[in-house]
């Protein structure tokens, strides 16, 4: 059967050719960005984590990866190893067994239990804990989270901050389009809905998303810890321009945020037209 392995060698060497040409194409990246990477692996890690709790998700992902790699390498060892050792030219007499003897049953059972406990049970326990203690552990009023209402519509994101009266959907609200500005080191609480179709409020750098659904208000909370400009994307097919439904997240230090918010509120008082019904897309903040 050297035929197959000969072909295999040929394929592997052409892989090398393809990989090399790819390295070259990275150097000549298209579309005008002078993006050059010295480290090819750089491009395969997730975006920078700017949230307090994002590391829980990253950690669980990495743990699952290590466990998966371990068991997958075992499977491949079995697959490739057995394929090699028990080639019919090397092993002319197969073992005649139905695989139903106690030793067989115990072996498969023990491996199965090991997989289940090592991966499945562990990761679901960890995830469950994280859900209960962190992600579904809503900030309490005393923690004074920053409340923002998010309205998704085809194909923009609208954000609303309660004004000085701390009541939503009044004339002094700060309303922005595609422009979310928040402070770091303070809990943020979003109530999210959609005007028309289902969208999804996705912040890759915080590792979080929640669907924006018409007729319901969903909520999400997070705490960010790095200042800068980050992307917001829509992660649910919402029509032709779904790919353009991005927004900008700007994180400020608390002082910078206060100065921005103060200025925005002053502008809002001047610019908001109380007669314009389109201003009042917000809703009474849902207390749950």
């Amino acid at each position: 059967m050297s035929g197959i392995f000969g072909i295999f060698k040929f394929i592997v060497s052409s892989m090398g050719v393809i990989a090399t040409s790819l390295m070259l194409s990275v150097a000549n990246a298209k579309d005008g960005t002078d993006y050059k990477s010295t480290n090819y692996w750089d491009i395969t890690v997730p975006p920078e984590d700017i949230s307090v709790n994002g590391h829980l998700i990253d950690w669980l992902f990495n743990y699952t990866t290590y466990m998966n790699l371990f068991f997958f390498i075992l499977v491949c060892a079995g697959l490739f190893g057995f394929a090699f050792i028990y080639h019919h030219k090397k092993n002319k007499k197969p073992l005649y067994t139905y695989g139903n003897k106690p030793v067989h049953i115990w072996t498969v059972t023990i491996i199965g239990v090991a997989v289940f406990i090592g991966i499945d049970a562990t990761i679901s326990a960890i995830s469950n804990n994280d859900l209960r203690n962190v992600f579904l552990n809503w900030p309490k009023e005393e923690e004074k989270p920053l409340k923002v209402q998010v309205m998704a519509q085809q194909w923009v994101w609208k954000f609303r901050y309660a004004g000085k009266d701390e009541v939503f959907n009044t004339q002094d609200d700060v309303v922005t389009v595609n422009d979310l500005r928040v402070p770091i080191n303070r809990k943020l609480l979003f109530q999210v809905t959609s005007k028309d179709v289902i969208h999804s409020f996705f912040l890759p750098n915080a590792r979080r998303k929640v669907d924006a659904m018409p007729g319901r208000i969903s909520r999400i909370w997070m705490e960010l810890n790095k200042a800068g400009k980050w992307p917001i994307a829509c992660a649910e097919m919402c029509g032709t321009h779904h790919y353009m439904m991005g927004a900008k997240l700007t994180t400020y230090t608390p002082e910078d945020f206060e100065s921005w918010l103060g200025q925005a509120q002053r502008v809002a008082m001047e610019v908001n037209d109380p007669e314009d019904l389109n201003l009042y897309w917000g809703w009474k903040w849902e207390v749950r």
């Binding site: 197959i4 499977v75 079995g78 057995f82 028990y86 019919h88 067989h104 491996i111 199965g112 289940f116």
Partner: peptide
Amino acid sequence: MTISIPSAIFFGNWLGTIWKGSIRF
């Protein structure tokens, strides 16, 4: 998570089938 148990059994059985076989490719 529980639904991955039967799939794991498949893998055990598939590898058990080729184990000590006389494999034609």
